[in-house]
Design a protein around this nucleic acid. Structure first.
Lengths: 129, 129
DNA sequence: TCGATGGATGCGCACGTGCGCATGAGTGGC
DNA sequence: GCCACTCATGCGCACGTGCGCATCCATCGA
């Protein structure tokens, strides 16, 4: 963990889990307690606490006490911008897949239904592309 | 892999490796062959090929043949925006750590040298914060 | 047709990560 | 002082991932 790329990869790794993404979006609308977060995510309390610990270790969220409860909040709302950028990449990727799928369905219709998962169209380089 | 958050997390997971980040930045300046990429990254050819396969599976890069060589190129340059957003989050995090470290060094100077790694200052909630 | 080169794939191992579970630590109410 | 509640932590297991290594496939030149 020393180069720029390693730090960027580490930041990505923190976000590489649906539960943590959901936590960030949940905290986007205001601070929240651990129990509420666990309930909203449908996970166990220790599990939510672990994910929160990861996010806190990365400095993406901050914690504070309010009586017996511990509330978490975003320490850098800008992380949502990163999520949006990631979602944009994902949407464009899905759009390309859908487009490719439609194009294939136009040429011939050998497939049952699924719009492939991105691995199909990007096969193993069948011929000089 | 069905909800929006799961797709976003998957996209993040693809970027959660320094080598893949470096590959994307390398391809930002134009298409490149596998051997060149492996050499630039200082990794073995099979290793580079595997990372490229991951990126291709995610639809972030595309491959094509040019004689015996296979060149890869970015299929969506917008992924660099996502990297930038991630880097921005990371920079702000480092800035907060540096600021906190400097603040601690101002109060007292119990530490030898390292500006902590973000886990120190975010200790286990010592008291009502 | 054969050898050489560039790339992809299969295999095995080591490591990290996520989760459930039980338990410990901190706080407020009685 | 004791109990109830909320959250954090330690432990063990299952799984995924990254890597080196050897090997196979595709293409080009002789």
């Amino acid at each position: 963990m020393e180069t720029l790329h390693e730090l960027m990869a580490e930041t990505c790794r923190i976000l590489a889990h649906p539960a943590r993404i959901r936590i960030l979006h949940l905290l986007a609308s205001g601070p929240c307690e651990v129990g509420t977060i666990a309930l909203a995510l449908g996970v166990s309390q220790p599990n939510a606490s672990q994910h929160l610990a990861v996010l806190r270790g990365a400095g993406l969220v901050e914690a504070g006490r309010d009586g017996r409860e511990v509330f978490y909040r975003l320490s850098d709302p800008g992380v949502l911008d990163a999520c949006d950028a990631m979602a944009a990449v994902m949407r464009r990727r899905l759009a390309r897949i859908a487009d490719l799928s439609a194009r294939l369905a136009g040429d011939a219709e050998p497939r049952g239904g699924g719009p492939a998962d991105g691995r199909g169209p990007g096969a193993p380089l069948p011929r000089s592309a």
